[in-house]
């Protein structure tokens, strides 16, 4: 098998240039998708028969919750690659995505809380899914805190990576929590285990577009932050002169 692509991906100058080229190809479609989905979800889709207009919170809650899990998987897998193959760029990816994941996990918790007010009659409940989502936020913050508290960059990468990898166990727990436990949180509505559709098809469109928009946004943010990380880590490399144009 030809492993050239793998070695290329491990090369900081290659990653830096590739990220710079790719960013607008993800950033602009993300902006369009999010704007269209916003208009669609707020103004066009009819109100829910039970929750009225209040159900529209789903269009920001579900995608940010999806982000919290997807970003964590990205972080966990990158950290594992960094640990196993001692690949510097992989550690840079993990360090780049942690703040993105933390911020969207916070939004998922906050929008869920706001939604819980009128629908459950409580803003906070020690419900399995909510508790494990909160743990996810602490894992992100723990990774960031640990990483910045260790002076030696390589030891910081490796130590924080161990935490990130161990924490991935929490991702399936969050995802399946509503199935495993009798939870106040509702069960999945788009993809259920028996393939049954629970959501009005008219309501699904903006949700899927939101999910796509947030995923594209995540890639654009990751590529931008990755360039910053790669520059910061490559203190002596000569290609930097060319990259920053001085």
């Amino acid at each position: 098998m030809d492993w050239t692509w793998f070695h290329k991906l491990a090369s900081p100058p290659y990653i830096y240039r590739l990220s710079a080229t790719l960013t607008p190809w993800f950033g602009w479609p993300a902006a369009v998708a999010l704007l269209v989905a916003t208009y669609w979800g707020l103004a066009i889709v009819p109100a829910d028969y039970q929750q009225g207009e209040g159900f529209r919170i789903i269009y920001v809650h579900a995608p940010t919750a999806w982000m919290s899990l997807m970003v964590y998987m990205t972080m966990g897998v990158s950290a594992a690659i960094g640990l196993i193959w001692r690949m510097k760029v992989a550690h840079a990816v993990a360090a780049s995505v942690a703040p993105i994941g933390a911020s969207f996990t916070f939004v998922a918790l906050a929008t869920g809380s706001i939604w819980g007010g009128p629908m459950w009659g409580t803003y906070w409940e020690w419900d399995p899914r909510i508790v494990f989502e909160l743990l996810l936020l602490f894992l992100y913050l723990g990774y960031m805190g640990l990483h910045s508290s260790i002076e030696d960059p390589q030891r910081a990468d490796r130590t924080a990576a161990v935490l990130a990898v161990v924490g991935t166990i929490n991702v399936p727990i969050v995802h399946f929590s509503v199935v495993w436990w009798n939870s106040l949180h509702q069960a999945p509505t788009i993809m259920t285990l028996d393939g049954q559709k629970n959501m009005d098809p008219r309501m699904v469109g903006p949700l899927l577009l939101m999910l796509a928009g947030f995923t594209l946004l995540f890639i654009a943010l990751l590529l931008t932050r990755l360039r910053a990380e790669v520059l910061r880590r490559e203190r002596t490399a000569s290609w930097i002169r060319e990259a920053v144009g001085s």
Partner: peptide, 18 residues
């Protein structure tokens, strides 16, 4: 928002800001 303005707008606003 059908009486849910106090919930829908803060949730969307926070997401937009972040």
């Amino acid at each position: 928002m059908g009486g849910y303005a106090a919930f829908v707008w803060p949730a969307w606003g926070l997401t937009f800001v972040v």
